[in-house]
């Protein structure tokens, strides 16, 4: 089932941030959300997750997400916030298991299925070897993967991840994107915001580029990510190359014109 966003308007403290934005997210695809700081990426993701007030339509299949109960929505859509909060000294496994909350009956102990899903999420994010360690004592990159595993364990058809790769070393950035691809391969729809252009170009099926709360470009990376577009959206000059794995985009300087 597809996630359809239609004509979305969002204002924060009276200031319009998103203007009539429409897009769709299909099962099996990883969509990269790009754009400069303040373009509205996080606001869009939070609006889809129902965390900020929005006007417009957010539908999954036939269901209006806004009309669903918070718990029902949490079984459709998982959201990984950009701010990484690890309260208390929870063991990694217990923290990841919090992702099962929308599926568990109040007060019931976790089922074998819950435990298996948690285990798979731990392996997917390469944190299984840390399962018994307190999450608060891990490195920033490890915490990012643990929190991503929590969102994965929510086992929802849609996953919205706000900059899951920031702060990760190159290997784990790749690993994170690989994990998202694998989830898409299971038929989930993934929306991920990124700042690393090469990462977006090589791992996403499609990118949506935002500027000033509007979609400036949308399409396959090869089709929309070129030097002129990057100059227009980010205000940077970039070296664009290509190899068998896809595009390589390296920003080289400022265009001088404010974005």
């Amino acid at each position: 089932m597809r996630l359809d966003i239609g004509n979305l308007d969002v204002s924060l403290s009276g200031r319009p941030v998103l203007h009539g934005l429409s897009m769709a997210l299909s099962p099996g695809e990883v969509v990269g959300l790009l754009g400069p700081n303040g373009a509205g990426k996080s606001t869009l993701m939070r609006a889809i997750a129902g965390l900020v007030e929005a006007r417009g339509d957010i539908r999954f299949g036939g269901d209006d997400l806004a009309a669903l109960s918070p718990a029902a929505r949490a079984r459709i859509l998982a959201y990984l916030p950009q701010t990484r909060i690890v309260g208390w000294r929870l063991a990694v496994r217990d923290l990841v298991a919090l992702g099962r909350i929308p599926w568990r009956r109040f007060g019931a102990p976790p089922t074998a299925e819950d435990e298996a899903i948690v285990e798979r999420a731990l392996i997917l994010m390469d944190v299984a070897h840390l399962a018994e360690r307190p999450a608060s004592e891990l490195s920033g990159g490890e915490q990012a993967r643990v929190l991503a595993a929590r969102a994965v364990a929510q086992s929802t058809p849609c996953l919205i991840a706000d900059e899951p790769a920031s702060g990760l070393d190159p290997a784990h950035q790749m690993m994170m994107m690989q994990a998202l691809r694998r989830l898409a391969g299971e038929g989930r729809a993934i929306l991920v915001s990124l700042h690393d252009l090469t990462l977006a170009a090589r791992w996403c099926d499609r990118v949506v580029m935002l500027r000033d709360g509007r979609i400036a470009a949308e399409g396959r990376p090869e089709a929309v990510m070129d030097a002129a577009r990057l100059a227009e959206i980010y205000g940077v000059t970039a070296h664009v190359a290509r190899d068998e794995g896809g595009l390589i985009l390296a920003p080289t300087g400022l265009t001088g014109a404010a974005p």
Partner: peptide, 21 residues
């Protein structure tokens, strides 16, 4: 409120996205 305070270990936004009212 037991379930909600567990989810709140991850902050308010993550808790809300876990279906906590």
């Amino acid at each position: 409120s037991a379930r909600a305070i567990d989810a709140l270990s991850l902050g308010e936004e993550a808790a809300a996205s876990l279906g906590i009212h």
